[in-house]
Design a protein around this nucleic acid. Structure first.
Lengths: 140, 140
DNA sequence: CTATAATACTTGTAATTTGCAACTATTAAC
DNA sequence: GTTAATAGTTGCAAATTACAAGTATTATAG
């Protein structure tokens, strides 16, 4: 059950990344999402959250910068660190992906009644919290 | 919320693939899982379920065969088709991954009470069913 | 205050994965 | 019986990734 759900969300993620004009990969969409969410994140920070090697991540950021979706600014407090942020274009792409995701989820939830919808959303929230508590995996 | 959950399950999938002896990739684990689940599946069938190109899939199966996890037998009814199955070793790896997954999920669910647990599981089931109904994505 | 260690990030290189186009082999359709 | 469709493979080029080794900066220890 969880296998199937994970796979479906993976597919969904892929589909939602082709936003008409500029296509990005699912990994890139997660990077954009997470940069947007965090407050002045460093490379290390985002890489760790996403569970990718810093070396791989470095190059991914490089391509996102050449795509003009991400900015990388040296941190004045610690000059080893770079602070990441989204460009206007990056924000736009991120929100396009978000919209596609939401449209899909709305469609999925349309097959449920009000009560089911609320139950499912509460359940996912609960599941996320429990996963965050778990030591085995998903450490933030 | 869904982004985070998806990412966590992705990470979990990665972690569960390193089964001590022989490591496999998350994609390979999904292939093994799906071959085990379907009845005498063809290449095309599994590739479609997993949403991978048949050309990529062909090569993935090749490596799984050299790893001695998968068998590929020509279908006598249609000689264009190959029927896939797991070797004893493949079954063993698949069940090891499954066990690791289950152990993790058990740990996650240990942070909930009986009622919450049941609600979450019912919700995931419901969500899966609704996704299956959806035309936008996740067509089987 | 200086030498050493640790941190943040980048680059070289080699291996793996992937996607497109073109291919073979077999079956279906007209 | 020719043509079209289906199942799968391979060549090749591009993208992704991982390890090791590198630079630059900051923290630590004596």
């Amino acid at each position: 059950m969880f296998q199937i759900m994970t796979r479906r969300f993976g597919l969904l993620n892929k589909v939602c990344c082709s936003t008409g004009g500029l296509d990005i990969t699912p990994i890139q969409s997660h990077i954009l999402y997470e940069i947007d969410k965090q407050h002045n994140p460093s490379m290390q920070q985002i890489a760790e959250i996403l569970g990718t090697e810093i070396t791989t991540f470095s190059r991914q950021i490089q391509t996102l910068i050449t795509m003009n979706l991400v900015r990388k600014v040296s941190d004045p407090n610690d000059r080893r660190v770079y602070v990441l942020s989204l460009t206007a274009e990056g924000k736009q792409i991120a929100s396009q992906v978000d919209h596609k995701m939401n449209a899909f989820l709305t469609e999925v939830f349309s097959h449920m009644n009000e009560f089911e919808r609320e139950t499912v959303i509460r359940s996912i929230k609960l599941l996320n919290e429990s996963m965050a508590k778990s030591k085995t995996c998903c450490s933030q």
